[in-house]
Nucleic acid binder design. Structure first.
Length: 437
RNA sequence: GCGGUCAUAGCUCAGUUGGUUAGAGCACAAGAUUGUGAAUCUUGGGGUCGCGGGUUCGAGUCCCGUUGGCCGCCCCA
């Protein structure tokens, strides 16, 4: 056992693990491409201030940060959003709208690892810039669903909870709350699912006890699970803004329903999402059984590009992580078994036969066939066993008898049948075999 | 940062009130087997019992510490 251990929360990817990871990335990338998103990448190491500007000084405790040899305060990226805001902000005037971008990248957070959470993890980030209407939300929610449905998961496996910070602010305003108490309440609402009634304690200490009538109204608003119920709830309220928001809600829900995804999305105003830079719709994906952490999360952040030094540019985005997604795929049995099988295994007699085989092996490999052969001289019996175990479809047999006759035996390892072909026709015979598959 | 729990071969685990040189299955490798398939048999490599200290004539086993894994709390962009 090595005395050098991996750092806590970091994973090593042996071939089998990497095959699983690549499978996840491949499906994500397929989905993003199908939706017309362009892929980008950016530095892993960023100035520390980039994250402080977005999230405040207290973020430093959760970062892998240090001073580099040039005296710069730097951090391994904990998320993509500030970076992509900078990229887009710098070239905003030259980019065709809407800007639809995605990336698959590794992130680092200095937190205690637990189920579904590591210190290093991968995320797909997808964002739309330059579109202020709910059409962007429709596109991203549909993409998020496809990023999970692409594995064969269905509406019985996961769902997306949709909420709206603007709607909450307008509603709380209608109940008579000012801006600061409203923000405090959103924090409390976010934690209600976990903490229950205690979550309003801090609010009570800061802004005075919550009136029972208002509290009941807030709890009732959180329990709304349909657009109809939402419309009934706000019908008597005077705020025009509320009605405009509900019109946007109708657009989003009609849009995803028209795509056939209605059953994946549920109205759920108990979702608020932690940090305060979200400005409108927010959404999170969860497994239906509810025993995993969130699969994905996102929302609208219309002020962030400008806050980070760019032009005013509306934006919506989400991120989906590899750790929880992988757990869900394993749990539902939709993670394929990855067999690392060659197309062809060569059975080779001795030294002269090996050189003859090499000629064909390289031609086949150059044509893209995956070909393997034993590195050392092995008894024929062993070689046939190895050929069968390798998972190859074909075996090419280069024995002394065959070469003396100017032929090579091609064995179909599935059918267990053999035929002889002249040596100069091996490559075309192999091509014919695989084109017929 | 806090709490619970665990740590013996690559993997899954056994290991008696503390007692000889720490075991099994699987996996890996070699042979039986120099011309045809996942079998069988034989053999082999592989361990600082996570690490450090203590108690003891003697510690994988008991005690303390520490590191790491898992689970949870805080946090979750």
């Amino acid at each position: 056992m090595s005395s050098f251990q991996t750092l806590p929360g970091f994973r090593e990817f042996y071939p089998e693990d990497l095959a699983r990871r690549n499978h996840i990335f491949r499906r994500w990338r397929q989905a993003a491409h199908a939706f017309g998103f362009a892929e980008y990448d950016a530095p892993v190491l960023e100035p520390l201030d980039l994250y402080k500007a977005k999230s405040g000084d207290e973020i430093e405790g959760q970062l892998f940060n240090f001073t580099d040899k040039g005296g710069r305060e730097v951090a391994l990226r904990p998320e993509m959003t500030p970076t992509v805001c900078r990229l887009v902000g710098a070239k905003a005037s030259a980019l065709k709208r809407p800007i639809k971008w995605f990336s698959i990248a590794e992130f680092y957070r200095y937190e205690r690892a637990q189920k579904g959470r590591q210190r290093s993890f991968f995320q797909l980030n997808a964002d739309i810039f330059g579109e202020s209407g709910p059409e962007a939300e429709i596109e991203l929610i549909a993409l998020l669903i496809q990023c999970l449905a692409g594995f064969g998961l269905t509406k019985d496996d996961f769902y997306v909870r949709l909420s709206d910070r603007d709607l909450w602010f307008f509603y709380l305003e209608a109940l008579g709350f000012g801006d600061a108490p409203a923000r405090e309440l959103l924090g409390a609402i976010d934690k209600f699912e976990k903490m229950g009634d205690d979550t309003f304690k801090t609010y009570g200490e800061k802004h005075g006890e919550l009136e029972p009538g208002k509290k009941a109204a807030i709890l009732g608003f959180m329990k709304i699970r349909s657009l109809d119920a939402l419309e009934r709830e706000i019908a008597g309220l005077p705020q025009e803004q509320l009605k405009a928001r509900v019109a946007d809600w109708r657009k989003v829900l009609e849009g995803v329903s028209a795509m056939g995804l209605g059953e994946y999305v549920s109205v759920d105003l108990s979702v608020v999402r932690g940090l305060a830079y979200y400005t409108g719709f927010v959404f999170e994906a969860f497994d239906r059984q509810g025993d995993l952490r969130a699969l994905a999360g996102g929302g609208r952040y219309d002020t962030l590009v400008e806050k980070l030094g760019g032009p005013a540019l509306p934006a919506v985005g989400f991120a989906i992580g590899d750790v929880t997604t992988g757990l869900l795929l394993e749990q539902r049995g939709v993670m394929p078994a990855f067999v690392n099988a060659p197309d062809i295994y060569c059975v080779i007699g001795g030294a002269p036969e090996r050189l003859a085989a090499f000629a064909d092996i390289h031609v086949l490999r150059a044509a893209g066939r995956r070909v393997e052969y034993p590195m050392k001289e092995l008894a024929f019996g062993k070689q046939f066993k190895a050929a069968a175990e390798s998972g190859a479809k074909l075996a090419l047999i280069y024995g002394g008898d065959e070469l003396a006759k100017g032929i090579v035996k091609i064995r179909d390892l599935t059918e267990r049948s053999e035929r002889e072909v002249p040596r100069d026709q091996v490559v075309s015979a192999v091509r014919d075999f695989f084109s017929g598959q």
